[in-house]
């Protein structure tokens, strides 16, 4: 059995081990956790030839620096637009490369994006909780936080030369809308409710027509927004109700917070709207002070959007999962494509 060992030279806050998530325990107060951006997580594994439920490292804006101390392993970095430095060579994310013994890899905050995924060609060893390595950040249950000086062990580590190179980005799957020449605002689709009836009509109007900024209060539990107040109809004391990832919960201060991967499973504050699943991937890659505009759609439209997204996602995943071939094969392909290949 070939193994690779990586020593963590630096890990920022909120860098954690994650698998696809522990779905099915909401009734026990346990959210699925797993990747903030499911799309980028899936892309990293697919492009590397991994199965979609393998463990990977979720890298925050804090960044991560690793050194390969034993063996060699091919890795994928996907998500956002992070800056990479591999063995002294600078590059950018959405790439597959091989870490040789003694080489360093740094994944750092780049031009945009909040979360990147580092997947390994092999089995990243991590603690499981309830059958999953996904880290529930508040408790630390699961694989846990990745911290400086930690050693990561990859069993069955492989070098997959045929997969090295860039990963096609899924830009077409990300909802974005230019509202003006200067301002790029991401439109985030929501279904209103389930507790929108508790808000005054001016709150509903403000929610639908204004833009909201993400604030620095942003972690795996949720992101607090800044924008027009969303006053409730009356001072409320409603019973706690179950909620889902993407819930836009409005606190007693009339301020909305979007609940994310490590959300509480029930909440006593009313939820004015809920972000549809595909758009959560877009939302989480934004940074504080970036603006969003909520676009309400009907529940039926939301299901249609998700089905369409799922079809496109499957096509994309199937496409990037095909190995690019060894260097010779790739040169040949590229020559064929550029039309300058001349058979002898």
């Amino acid at each position: 059995m070939t193994e690779a060992r990586l020593s963590v030279q630096f890990a920022g806050a909120l860098v954690t081990l994650q698998d696809a998530g522990r779905t099915g325990h909401l009734r026990y107060g346990v959210p699925a956790s797993g990747p903030m951006d499911k799309l980028a997580f899936a892309a990293a594994h697919a492009a590397l030839g991994n199965s979609p439920d393998q463990s990977a490292i979720e890298i925050s804006l804090g960044g991560l620096i690793l050194e390969c101390t034993t063996g060699a392993v091919t890795v994928a970095v996907a998500g956002g637009d992070f800056a990479i430095e591999h063995a002294g060579v600078k590059g950018s994310g959405w790439t597959i490369l091989t870490l040789q013994q003694g080489e360093r890899l740094s994944v750092r905050v780049g031009k945009s994006g909040s979360w990147a995924y580092l997947a390994f060609a092999g089995d990243l060893q991590a603690n499981e909780w309830l059958g999953h390595t996904a880290t529930h950040s508040i408790s630390g249950f699961g694989g846990g936080a990745v911290v400086s000086e930690q050693e990561l062990l990859i069993n069955n580590a492989e070098v997959r030369k045929e997969r090295e190179g860039n990963i096609e980005t899924p830009g077409f799957l990300i909802a974005q809308k230019k509202l003006s020449q200067t301002e790029k605002i991401d439109s985030i689709r929501v279904v209103m409710g389930p507790q929108d009836k508790w808000f005054r009509s001016e709150a509903i109007d403000a929610f639908k027509n204004s833009s909201y900024q993400l604030t620095d209060s942003y972690d795996r539990m949720g992101v607090r927004l800044q924008g027009p107040d969303l006053p409730l109809d009356a001072a409320l004391s409603i019973p706690s109700e179950p909620l889902l990832r993407g819930s836009v919960q409005v606190s007693g201060e009339n301020v909305p917070t979007i609940l994310l991967a490590d959300h509480g499973t029930t909440g006593g504050y009313p939820k004015i709207a809920t972000v549809i699943s595909p758009d959560i991937n877009t939302l989480v890659q934004l940074r504080s002070r970036q603006a969003i505009k909520f676009v309400p759609i009907t529940a039926a439209e939301a299901v249609d959007v998700t089905r369409d997204f799922s079809t496109k996602l499957k096509e994309y995943i199937a496409k990037i999962a095909i190995p690019r071939g060894n260097l010779q094969q790739r040169l040949m392909q590229e020559n064929l494509i550029s039309g300058i290949y001349n058979p002898e």
């Binding site: 009734r27 179950p242 889902l244 699943s277 939301a302 998700t306 089905r307 799922s310």
Partner: peptide, 16 residues
Amino acid sequence: EVVPALINAMVVFDPL
């Protein structure tokens, strides 16, 4: 999955 609570239950489904 189903999340039973105080006055209601959330039924989570696969939209596909």
